[in-house]
Design a protein around this nucleic acid. Structure first.
Lengths: 240, 240
DNA sequence: CCTACCGATCGGTAGG
DNA sequence: CCTACCGATCGGTAGG
C-alpha cells in the first residue's frame, strides 16, 4: 500500500477514498491477508466501542487502546472514523444477506417465514454490538455510504416481504397490507436487540421460536373454517 | 436565590443540581409561568435537534439558534446539556403515562389491549422526535437520571403486560410466556418510529388499527371451540 | 507504527 | 435587588 495520508480533502482523494473503503468492505467478509484480518479486528472492536458509547461519543482512542495500538496507527488501515462506521455496518449486512440467501431455498411457506424470523432474532442475539450500531448509529453515515447500506437493507426487507406475502396468501397471517405486516414482523424481531438477553433465562433459540410462533400461528386459523387449535392452548404455561 | 454558580462540581452543588432539574421536570407537563413555557419550547426544539443529529452531535448552538436566542441564554433555564436531554425524555414519558392511565379504565379485555397498541403507535407518530431521542439517545443519560427514566419506563411496560396477560388468558393471543409476548408486541409498536410515516399514504390511525388487528386477532381463534364470542365482536365500537 | 502536533469546535462560564 | 439576556473567552478534546 502506498502512503496517501497527506491530502485528506483533495478532490481526487475524495473519489479514491470512496473506492478505497468500498474495496476494503468487499474483502472483509472473507479476510485473507493479515492486513485484512487486522482490519476485521478493528471493525469488531469498533462495533463494541460504538455500541457502548455511540458513534459520536466513542473515540478512536477507545478503539486503538483496546487493540493495543496507538490512535494514529488506525490510519494505516482506514482513512477516517467514518470509514470504520461504514465498514462495521456493511460487514453486518453482508453477513445477514449471505445467510439469508441460504434460508430462502426453504420450500414450505410457513417454515420459510419461521426460518427468516428465527434466523434474524438469533443473528441479532449473536451480533448484538453490530446490530445496536446499525439500528442506532446508521444515521451517522454520510453519502454515498448511506445509500449503499440502504440498498442492502432493502434487499433484506424484500426477502422478508416475499415470505410474508406467501404466508398471508396461504392464510397463515391476518390479512392486512403486506408492507405493514412485513414491518410489523421485522419490528418484533429487530426490537429484540433492546430486551432479549442472549445470556438470559430463556435460551436465544427457544425465545426466537416462541416469537415465531407468536407471529406465525402454528395452525392456519386465519383461514375460514379451520378448527382444532386446542393443542396449542393445552400447553398453558403462565411462565415468566 | 443566592448565587451558587461558582462551584460547578462541588458535592453539595451536585445534589441541588439534581433537585433543581427534577423540580423543573415535574412542572413541565403543565407549564404555568412564562419561564416554564419557554423551557418547554426549549425542550421541544431540543427534541427536533437531537432527533436530526443525535444527542452527542447536536449542539446547544443548534437549539438556541432555532429559538432565536444565544447559547449562553440557555443557561438561564438549564444548567447543562444533560439537563435538556433528561427533560426531553422525561417529558415524553410523563405524557405517555398520563394518557396510559386513561386507557387502562377500558373494561373489555380485547379493546383494552387494542387501545394500548393503537395509542402507542399514534403517539409515536405524533411525537416522532421525542421517541427517536428516547429510543436512540436514552443511553446518553447519566445517573441518577437514567434510573428515574427506567422506572417510568417499567411502569409503562407493566401496564402493557397486564393487558397482554388478560388477553392471553382469554385466548386472544397465542400462548407464549407473557413477558416475551409483551416485548414482541411492544417491539411491533415501537419500531414504527423507524418506518411508519405519519404523512405517508396510509393515515396514522388506520395503520395503527391494522397493526392492532395483526397482533390481536379480531376473532378469538386461539381458544378452542368458542363460537359465541361474535356478540363481543358485534357490540364493540370499531369506530375509535 | 510512534511522537508530536494542527485547526475546529465542543459545552460551559466569566464579567457586565 | 431582580429578570433576562449578551459578547467574549475559558478549559478540554475531537478528528486528522
Amino acid at each position: 500500500m502506498t502512503q496517501m495520508q497527506r491530502q485528506p480533502n483533495a478532490a481526487r482523494s475524495q473519489q479514491t477514498a470512496r473506492e478505497h473503503v468500498i474495496s476494503l468492505a468487499e474483502r472483509l467478509l472473507h479476510p485473507q491477508s493479515s492486513h485484512e484480518q487486522r482490519l476485521l479486528e478493528i471493525v469488531k472492536t469498533a462495533a463494541a466501542v460504538f455500541r457502548e458509547r455511540g458513534y459520536e461519543a466513542g473515540t478512536l482512542e477507545d478503539i486503538s487502546q483496546q487493540l493495543g495500538m496507538t490512535r494514529p496507527a488506525l490510519y494505516h488501515y482506514v482513512r477516517s472514523k467514518q470509514d470504520i462506521l461504514f465498514l462495521t455496518i456493511n460487514y453486518l449486512l453482508d453477513i445477514a444477506l449471505a445467510e439469508l440467501n441460504e434460508l430462502e431455498r426453504q420450500q414450505d411457506t410457513r417454515e420459510r417465514l419461521r426460518s427468516l424470523i428465527i434466523h434474524l432474532i438469533t443473528l441479532i442475539g449473536r451480533e448484538r454490538s453490530f446490530f445496536t450500531v446499525f439500528f442506532r448509529d446508521k444515521a451517522g453515515l454520510e453519502e454515498p455510504y448511506l445509500s449503499l447500506i440502504r440498498e442492502k437493507e432493502r434487499a433484506y426487507v424484500a426477502a422478508f416481504r416475499r415470505a410474508v406475502r406467501e404466508a398471508m396468501t396461504a392464510g397463515m397471517l391476518p390479512n392486512i397490507p403486506e408492507g405493514i405486516a412485513t414491518q410489523a414482523i421485522l419490528g418484533c424481531c429487530n426490537w429484540t436487540y433492546q430486551w432479549l438477553d442472549p445470556a438470559g433465562p430463556v435460551p436465544l433459540e427457544q425465545a426466537a421460536e416462541l416469537i415465531a410462533s407468536f407471529l406465525v400461528d402454528p395452525h392456519p386459523t386465519h383461514l375460514a373454517g379451520k378448527e382444532d387449535t386446542s393443542a396449542a392452548v393445552a400447553s398453558d404455561g403462565q411462565g415468566q
